[in-house]
Nucleic acid binder design. Structure first.
Ligand code: SF4
Ligand code: SF4
Lengths: 194, 194
DNA sequence: ACAATCCGGATATTACACGTCCAGATTCCC
DNA sequence: GGGAATCTGGACGTGTAATATCCGGATTGT
């Protein structure tokens, strides 16, 4: 699964925590997590095309949530970023080699391998669709009570002026951080934050 | 998911359908599905290292099932080929940018995003672990009754001599078939065979 | 008018799945 | 014993897709 999913979930949650219907630009969302702004913009565009975010152009434009968090499931976000294809893609190797003789038999009958994989995929998708971003937000706030306020403070919301300079070090040495190698593993359990 | 999973499942089922404890070489398994032999060998080695197959070297060597089909789950095969990593890998973007201030808070508390994704992954793994290759085989035979006998015939089993020449066109124009493009989609439902 | 922003495509870079090849070890058959 | 067939494990090459950047165009606020 591409890391764009993680970015997308975090951006949606951030937009919700701001509790503010003013749109937030790609640059500011990217600075909040030190992500490459141009690439993050691609993911946000995908979320907008999927109807999860709405985008407004112009100098005070940006992105905002298209609907409340409890109407956005994790399945929505994953599908918007990853596309609709299933993980297991059948290559029809069964029709090759010893199965490539007469087209008489083995046609149109459902495949046991593919349908077994399909059942597992369905279980995954159901589990994703059963969890809304509101659930995730609630669980996160249960772990870290001050979360929303901290984010609002970092974004300078609450003050009517949109805070001319970014409060912290802004975006500087952002990109070129090679995604943590999958083999190295490092820490095991689901790590910090919420 | 890599196509090696499909190859692995088909090879295990084929070994079971042969109803014969003589090992089958990589070359013959590859010829049966027109797969690149050297690369299929890599997948079979992974299955052997996972304890699903046993390999015997030597001129009459090859691979055979290490245990009966009803003791091999789809989860076993997928893990053997794909490795143990979860699909969603957290990059800890939460610790960057606005979250990179003091190490005092947000440490060691479980992550809501990661654990939600983890729950979905667990559902997928449970669904895979609940289906054994024996189930898949039974479902396949329900769809195409003559399956096992046809495979045994193609492999020349039943005749005590291991059939000096491959019955059909053997392996010739095997590889270089670009895996069906994921975007093209083509047919929708789980396709033919079993 | 100008600046900030989104939009969408083109392009570059990098990681990894895919595939080949080779030297070594083991076993079978003559 | 010698040769052939096979597995083993690693190095290597290849091609595609994920990652990342860039630019021209359109839209909107000041
Ligand atoms: S048996 Fe199923 S998984 Fe295998 S090639 Fe046929 S359709 Fe694909
Ligand atoms: S909040 Fe969860 S998913 Fe996001 S960076 Fe932290 S641990 Fe990873």
């Amino acid at each position: 699964m591409s890391e764009g999913v993680e970015w997308a979930v975090h951006c949606c949650l951030t937009l919700a925590w701001l509790e503010d219907d003013r749109p937030v630009s790609t640059a500011r969302l990217a600075a909040g997590y030190e992500l490459p702004p141009a690439y993050l913009n691609k993911q946000l565009q995908a979320l907008a095309k999927a109807g999860i975010l709405t985008s407004t152009p112009g100098v005070k434009g940006g992105f905002r949530l298209a609907r409340p968090l409890d109407k956005i499931t994790l399945m929505d976000v994953v599908t918007a970023i990853e596309g609709p294809d299933e993980a297991f893609q059948c290559t029809e190797i069964r029709q090759r080699g010893m199965g490539a003789e007469g087209p008489e038999r083995r046609f149109r009958v459902p495949c046991a391998v593919a349908s077994a994989m399909h059942r597992a995929e369905l279980a995954w998708r159901r589990a994703l669709a059963a969890q809304t971003l509101a659930d995730v937000r609630a669980e996160a706030e249960g772990h870290v009570p001050g979360l929303g306020e901290g984010i609002q403070r970092w974004y300078g919301r609450g003050a009517s002026t949109p805070s001319p300079a970014a409060p912290a070090g802004s975006a500087s040495a952002a990109s070129r951080r090679p995604r943590a190698s999958r083999t190295s593993g490092a820490s095991g359990a689901p790590p910090a934050t919420g």
